[in-house]
Design a protein around this nucleic acid. Structure first.
Length: 784
RNA sequence: GGGCGAUUAGCUCAGUGGUUAGAGCGCUCGCCUCACACGCGAGAGGUCGAAGGUUCAAGUCCUUCAUCGCCCACCA
């Protein structure tokens, strides 16, 4: 095999195998062994661009486990797909359109949706190609997309069940409003950043003709235009006499009452709080208790509304400046304090979030959270690392209702119709969908209003939060709500691997909706085994790849690393190995150039060890010895071989080591210790097999054949074979290439369908490792 | 304001109470030895963040503190 290059050149090999695996549908679940099912749903990447290094870390870990299970005899399904990612995708497509000077409003809803579908084809296609190229052993015949008809139907089914059970309601409430995205977002989509700001102290005069006044403090002075009261603590002696009287709201010249409410902290500031029910969650509650008017002084795009009087039309930050200036001119600006405070910004576009009253759809979470909490406490879903379990339980304990409506154009449209005549709300009659311009929409359209008989019905324009559909993923992808063979075979999935950053967004909601939709109700016994209602039996939260400053990798910040470029330079297997070797549970990863180079050297080492064997074997062909004589599948399976009456010490040792390594790798992989699995096989292959075993047997395999030589040759090929199979989950391409250079019984397909090594080949190992270690020490001193 | 994690060799990191704390990279010395210089052989390098405590035994368990990072939280 003189054609074996001296240095491992991964590009051509990887591309060839990636294509072959895909074309042959090698990882279709039906191709797996007939053993117990093992299933994983891919956390669907957002179709907002392409794969980044964080995806690659996640996919490497999933793929290692999936390949390992598949090789260990499980009927294995790794189901891939993509998420439509409502707000995220709409954001990037709007940004693309902006380059052409187009706003989505210019296009209208339908045309804009068409543009996004085009984008989806492009981005989704790119992600799929990248995953294939990076060796993800998914069953692409089962690929899914959250907006495709079957999954659209699942979402409507979910909505209707929750709606009819009274868990989904529509209400006017304070929500997090993003003026850039012009939609409400959930609490989880607001990120808090510490920023320098000001606390403005404003003086509101009493209207009783006295010169008296109260001073309130605010970080958002422009909201004072919507104040409808000031509040003091009922037991605050300083202000008791003011309660029930009025102050004059400056700039608006509106009389507003002084009210008493225990919400006020007497110790903070002056002990007087301005109350703006339409722009602050606490004030909203206070306002409800005291029947205060709610004055929304802003518009959807973050400008001041008509209710803001002469400030109407101004941008909210411009209005802030003007309000402060005007108050100062009136002598009502008591003081300005410099503070740093936490500002909520939109997770997606980083604009400042405006707490604002708005009519939205909500999902009651307490009834969903309680059974989930109990299940986690009872250990029905194993959470790894364990400390994440506490974090999850804490969150479930403090859960609040979920704002599920979004004022977007991209997503599952809420399946409710409004009667144009009487405003009655009519949910879809069933969860069926129909195709419109090639894409799904709700088909269970109500025909007439049962209340007024009107037939002019208009569907709700809001769409659902992306996570409302994502949380069905492990079962909607298997055919739910239908009872399909896939659902019966592969559900609940065996494992969920996700980043801990989406524990609340996704993982927790999957547990909650999974249990609920399976019929688990708080206080009522479930129809099936409770564990079978949880979408996954184990939950592994993997680390995040961070920059050296600790920030998350981010494309928008330019700190994202393109894994394709790194794989071009170093090879996919090397990058996979590097990521695996750093993936210790519970600790985030900072990429290191050195570690990548080390992994690349390892790939090259494996290549050259094999090359050495094949080159020397060639020399033996003159003696009539072929690889079939030495390394046929039967020969490899029958190893180890005796040299004469007994096993040679090196043989005995290397097989013992191999068995030990196999055992440790099985254990490591079963416990998500990817780094240990990677380092164990590294140490074995390089430190034991190359540095010692090959060196020891070199004299025999480089000289003319004898019986001992042949036994040695057979053993060495058997060890190579075992090594390749042990390595395969982490370095699939290289091992596939080398494995195909060994002889096989036809038909043969892939090392990926071979058995993962498990059992020791030589049982009698008393004292061998110790003896060899002693020998190695003697040899080392001799070298000195 | 709560919670979590990190702190170990020059660097990046492993270390599941038990002999002299490990790896890779880097460094020093010697090698292009007919698989590999992405390599081979031999080395140097650590009071395991600080202080207490538990234990026959602590990098590992407990307490306090420091520094860094992350998450959660409606105090204007």
């Amino acid at each position: 095999m003189a054609e074996i290059p001296k240095a491992y050149e991964p590009q051509e090999i990887e591309e060839r195998w990636a294509k072959a695996w895909f074309d042959e549908k090698l990882f279709r679940a039906e191709n797996s062994a007939d053993g117990p099912p093992f299933s994983i749903a891919l956390p669907p990447p957002n179709i907002t661009g392409s794969i980044h290094i964080g995806h690659m870390l996640e996919h490497t870990q999933i793929d290692m486990l999936v390949r390992w299970r598949r090789m260990s005899g499980y009927r294995t399904l790794w189901l891939p797909g993509m998420d439509h990612a409502g707000i995220g995708t709409q954001f990037v497509v709007e940004r693309e359109l902006a380059k052409e000077g187009i706003r989505r409003q210019d296009l209208g809803r339908e045309e804009f949706e068409r543009r996004i579908w085009q984008w989806k084809e492009k981005s989704g296609g790119a992600i799929k190609q990248q995953m294939i190229r990076l060796g993800a052993s998914c069953d692409w015949t089962r690929e899914k997309f959250t907006l495709e008809p079957a999954l659209y139907r699942a979402v409507i089914e979910e909505f209707l069940r929750l709606y009819h059970d009274g868990l989904i309601y529509r209400a006017r409430y304070i929500v997090n409003w993003c003026p850039r995205c012009q939609t409400a977002v959930s609490d989880l989509e607001v990120v808090h950043v510490e920023r320098p700001g000001h606390l403005w102290h404003l003086r509101y005069p009493l209207v009783d003709g006295s010169k008296g006044s109260v001073v309130v403090a605010t970080t958002r002075p422009e909201t004072m235009l919507g104040d409808t009261a000031v509040a003091v603590h009922p037991d605050d002696e300083r202000y008791k006499k003011l309660v029930g009287r009025n102050v004059l709201l400056p700039l608006m010249d509106r009389e507003i009452p002084v009210i008493a409410d225990t919400y006020v902290d007497r110790e903070f500031g002056t002990g007087v709080v301005k109350i703006t029910p339409a722009h602050d969650p606490n004030d909203f509650e206070v306002g409800k208790r005291h029947n205060l008017p709610q004055i929304d002084v802003m518009t959807n795009d973050g400008r001041m509304s008509a209710a803001a009087g002469k400030y109407a039309g101004l941008d909210r930050f411009e209005a802030r400046k003007r309000v402060v200036e005007d108050l100062k001119a009136l002598g009502l600006l008591e003081k300005i304090e410099d503070i740093t405070h936490s500002v909520g910004v939109c997770d997606r576009c980083k604009s400042e979030i405006e707490p604002r009253i708005s009519t939205q759809w909500f999902c009651k979470m307490r009834p969903l959270a309680e059974p989930a909490k109990k299940a986690v406490i009872d250990g029905l879903v194993e959470v790894v690392p364990d400390n994440q379990r506490t974090i999850l339980l804490n969150w479930l304990d403090n859960i609040r209702d979920w704002c599920i409506s979004r004022q977007l154009w991209w997503g599952h449209r809420i399946p409710v119709w409004h009667c144009d005549n009487c405003r009655e709300m009519l949910p879809a009659t069933d969860s069926s969908v129909e195709l419109f311009e090639g894409h799904a929409r709700a088909a269970g359209v109500p025909k007439r209003c049962p209340k007024c008989g009107g037939t002019a019905l208009t569907q709700e324009t809001d769409v659902l939060d992306t996570w409302f559909s994502s949380c069905l993923w492990p079962y909607s992808t298997l055919g739910w709500p239908d009872d399909t063979p896939d659902l019966r075979t592969f559900y609940p999935t065996s494992l969920l691997i996700s980043g801990y950053d989406i524990l609340f967004f996704w993982d927790a909601r999957m547990i909650m909706t999974g249990m609920y939709l399976s019929g688990v109700r708080d206080g009522a016994p479930p129809k099936t085994d409770r564990a079978d209602t949880i979408p996954f039996r184990r939950l592994y939260l993997h680390s995040l790849v961070r920059t050296s400053e600790g920030a998350k990798m981010s494309k928008t910040k330019g700190t994202g690393v393109d894994p394709l470029q790194l794989t071009q330079e170093n090879g996919t297997d090397a990058l996979r190995y590097m990521l695996a070797s750093m993936a210790a549970p519970g600790t985030d990863i900072v990429l290191s150039e050195d570690r990548i180079l080390g992994a690349r050297a390892f790939a090259n080492k494996i290549w050259n060890a094999a090359r050495f064997l094949f080159l020397n074997l060639q020399k033996l062909e003159a003696h009539g010895l072929t690889i079939e004589h030495l390394a046929s599948p039967a020969h490899r399976a029958a190893a180890p071989y005796r040299s004469g009456d007994d096993f040679a010490l090196p043989d005995r040792w290397i097989f013992a080591r191999a068995a030990d390594v196999a055992e440790r790798m099985n254990d490591a992989l079963d416990n998500f210790r990817f780094h240990e699995a990677a380092q164990t096989i590294y140490q074995f292959f390089w430190g034991d097999f190359c540095d010692w075993y090959i060196e020891w047997v070199k004299p025999q395999i480089t000289s003319a054949p004898t019986e001992t030589t042949i036994a040695t040759w057979r053993n060495i090929f058997a060890v190579l074979d075992v090594s390749l199979r042990l390595l395969h989950p982490v370095m699939p391409f290289l091992t596939e290439e080398l494995w195909h250079r060994l002889p096989h019984e036809r038909p043969y397909r892939s090392i990926a369908l071979c058995e993962f090594p498990r059992v020791p080949a030589i049982s009698d190992q008393h004292g061998v490792p110790e003896l060899v270690e002693l020998l190695q020490q003697i040899i080392v001193s001799a070298r000195n």
